[in-house]
């Protein structure tokens, strides 16, 4: 798997995700500065990491979505290339219209950093092939704007077409309002584009890939990608 991690001014989890990719694929990803206009030749996977690109000023992800590299990312996605956006990366994907919906301020109006449980809703994708259908996994979130929103019609459509990747749930897998850290519509934690080659998600699987930091559930996502893109 040849992966490229885009670094925007203000990205701060690029190293975390690069290490998770490296653990899964035994290949070191390449960092690409947001001001570049081309991805390295042969890139299989582009990752937009977490952080506060451009300080989250204007609107989270709004300015990064206009960075020079984003044309190349869009072209890569249009060709069927894989793109993963985590946290601020998800916000950037939403602003770039590469995945449906928007991320609003958390319902609590506060930043939230804690472990959450996710129910895996789709396992027939390159990102999630290693999960069991309906599997409940534990990974952390760390964000202030993760409240997923779109209109009911779109929600119905993406649910119908298998574009929901993960939902917040409790430890037993029950999808309840209390289990959501941010008030997301229908507890959505991650969504695919229509082609399911682009995934945006708020939780941080990259921070849950070793027993010593609290668990390995997040590693399944990177292992899935490494296997699918081997």
């Amino acid at each position: 798997m040849k992966a490229a991690v885009v670094v925007f001014p203000g990205s701060n989890r690029e190293r975390d995700i690069a290490l998770a990719l490296q653990r899964a694929s035994y290949t070191r990803p390449v960092y690409v500065w947001h001001g570049e206009t081309e991805l390295p030749a042969g890139t299989d996977l582009v990752v937009l990491p977490g952080g506060f690109s451009h300080g989250d000023y204007l609107r989270c992800g709004a300015m990064a979505a206009l960075s020079p590299i984003m044309d190349a990312v869009k072209a890569h996605a249009a060709r069927g290339g894989y793109v993963l956006g985590v946290c601020n990366g998800f916000q950037i994907l939403a602003e770039a219209r590469l995945v449906p919906g928007v991320l609003m301020r958390n319902a609590s109006l506060r930043f939230v950093c804690r472990d959450v449980h996710l129910k895996v809703e789709a396992t027939d994708t390159a990102f999630t092939g290693g999960f069991k259908p309906g599997q409940v996994v534990r990974v952390p979130v760390a964000h202030a704007e993760g409240n997923y929103f779109t209109d009911d019609e779109t929600l119905n459509r993406i649910e119908g077409e298998g574009q929901v990747a993960f939902r917040y749930c409790d430890a037993d897998g029950a999808v309840t309002e209390a289990a959501s850290p941010n008030g997301s519509a229908r507890n959505i934690a991650g969504v695919f584009n229509a082609g399911r080659n682009v995934l945006g998600m708020m939780p941080h699987p990259e921070n849950m890939t070793e027993d010593v930091v609290g668990g390995t559930d997040g590693a399944i996502l990177f292992d899935s990608l490494a296997k699918a893109l081997a």
Partner: peptide
Amino acid sequence: VEQYDHLVGGD
């Protein structure tokens, strides 16, 4: 504690 990102860096 939950308002502080205590996990970034993965260390």
